[in-house]
Design a protein around this nucleic acid. Structure first.
Lengths: 210, 210
DNA sequence: TTGGACATACAAACCGGTCGGTATGTAATG
DNA sequence: CATTACATACCGACCGGTTTGTATGTCCAA
């Protein structure tokens, strides 16, 4: 039995504190980017002082990679709904994925539909090898899953159209990232949704039999 | 005293100096982003001191918007080869545009195939209204031109497939931006080229008659 | 001589990161 | 159970360096 509730007024929960720092980082970075967000700002957002911060992370870069990884886990959890059910027709898995993406544009909690991996890629991947590797890993993960579904769908439905599942997967990933980029600048979630619908129609077209 | 021949080694050419600053900014920003590039660094790159810099630009933000505008002009000049010839079949104009994009991935002068508008969009458009507006303007310009060609091609070829030229134009713009983003992080220009080829095939497919 | 085009020097804020110190939890010992 | 010993979690002042921006001086062409 643990009686942690009774004992102290101040709760010492290092794992939760660390997560609070990551959450604050994600929140601020989605808005301001990495260079534009200072450690002081993150600490304030997380209700923590700088001394405490550097107890949990070696430096700002370590926090950045942790935030990217965390974002990747969030994404995987988000798409899991579409990917996990391996008994399903892979083409239906892809359809579910598009639904999830459209749902992502409708989140009420965040103002814009943005991706931390995409932001970090643009800002840092050319200069910071650690960030570049972290972002590439996440992009690869998404593409690999989509390519897997496309390959399975190809085997199942034997479409007339010839295409390389990996190339199409990168095509869709690029479109998804670019849609969030353009959607942010043009302040239009609907633009993103239109793109997703066109992407969905594109995939359907690949498997359409005349 | 010093030899002050009629045309001394130090040329006073404010317009050229201003352009040198912009060029240096573009060069550095493509690599490091906006926040990651300091005014000192820009001055050094342009062979100029800070006092001189602030004589030409009110502040760093003014330089940033000037750099985005300059990038936009470069882009327009680049695509002009495809867009200018209004006598040409608009579908051929689009084909030329894809060729130009593929050519852009093969530039030897720059390490990576990147877009300043896309970088600035991701990093700054959520927090800086001036940058947001400048980037949106450039994105709109590209899309408008593509939509114009698609509309003209539609009128000329009367394809069976139904599509909205504006939506398709945004689709292509998003794909283009996303391709450069992903291509940078995955360090693959070939990935970008594959995406462009798929995009070209997509457009051809829109106008294909069975 | 006057004003634009630069250079030099400096300011004030801010940056990431360190450091000494303290509060708190835990485990061994007697 | 009480004491001691030590590790972890966190605080807040502080450091050296960098940031954008300013104030002032100098040179040169018209």
């Amino acid at each position: 039995m643990s009686k942690k509730a009774t004992s102290s007024k101040r709760e010492r929960d290092p794992a939760a504190t660390r997560q609070r720092l990551i959450d604050a980082t994600v929140r601020l970075m989605l808005q301001q980017g990495f260079s534009g967000t200072s450690v002081d700002q993150i600490c304030k957002e997380a209700g923590m002082t700088k001394g405490g911060f550097f107890h949990h992370f070696e430096n700002k870069e370590a926090l950045g990679t942790a935030a990217v990884e965390w974002w990747g886990q969030m994404g995987t959890a988000l798409y899991a709904e579409a990917w996990k059910d391996t008994a399903l027709d892979p083409l239906d898995q892809l359809r579910r994925m598009f639904d999830i993406m459209i749902g992502f544009t409708r989140r009420p909690d965040e103002a814009a539909c943005v991706c931390m991996v995409g932001m970090m890629s643009q800002e840092m991947s050319a200069t910071n090898p650690a960030f570049q590797a972290a972002c590439e890993k996440e992009l690869n993960l998404w593409t690999t899953n989509v390519a897997r579904m496309l390959t399975a769908a190809k085997k199942l439905h034997k479409p007339e159209t010839k295409f390389d599942p990996v190339q199409v997967a990168w095509f869709l990933n690029s479109l998804w990232q670019g849609s969030m980029l353009v959607g942010k600048t043009c302040r239009s979630q609907e633009l993103i949704r239109h793109n997703i619908k066109l992407a969905r129609a594109y995939v359907e077209g690949l498997f359409q039999t005349n």
